[in-house]
């Protein structure tokens, strides 16, 4: 976590103040890819959209799903992953828990 904060620079540095950049990284790769990073994301990825629908049909899981960023990708409410995994197991699924 601490390491990634080093990269966060959404505002230009004040005049006379050095920018908060990782040590020498600008010199290493001038063609860095712009990206926005989301930490500690909890989500479910299913094999296909039908399985995602099946998962969402479970009322308890649906309560903990706060969004759907793709047909087969469901965002889980922070802190509710364990409950979701347990509910998936009750449904007979054997989800692989990563991260």
């Amino acid at each position: 976590m601490g390491r990634t904060f080093l990269f966060a620079q959404t505002k230009p540095a004040k005049p006379g103040k050095q920018e908060c950049l990782p040590h020498g990284l600008d010199d290493v790769n001038p063609t860095r890819i712009p990206v926005k990073l989301h930490h500690r994301v909890c989500l479910i990825q299913t094999e296909d959209a039908i399985l995602a629908e099946e998962v969402l049909a479970n009322r308890r899981i649906a309560q903990d799903v706060v969004g759907r960023i793709a047909d087969s990708v469901l965002l889980v409410r922070p802190g509710r992953v364990e409950a979701v995994v347990q509910e998936l197991q009750k449904m007979g699924h054997t989800p692989q828990v990563l991260g």
């Binding site: 990206v35 989301h38 479910i44 990825q45 094999e47 995994v85 989800p95 828990v97």
Partner: peptide, 14 residues
């Protein structure tokens, strides 16, 4: 293999 649950992953938004 059908369901993967990411508990605290890093998501890259390009």
């Amino acid at each position: 293999e059908r369901i993967a649950v990411y508990s605290a992953a890093a998501l890259f938004e390009f």
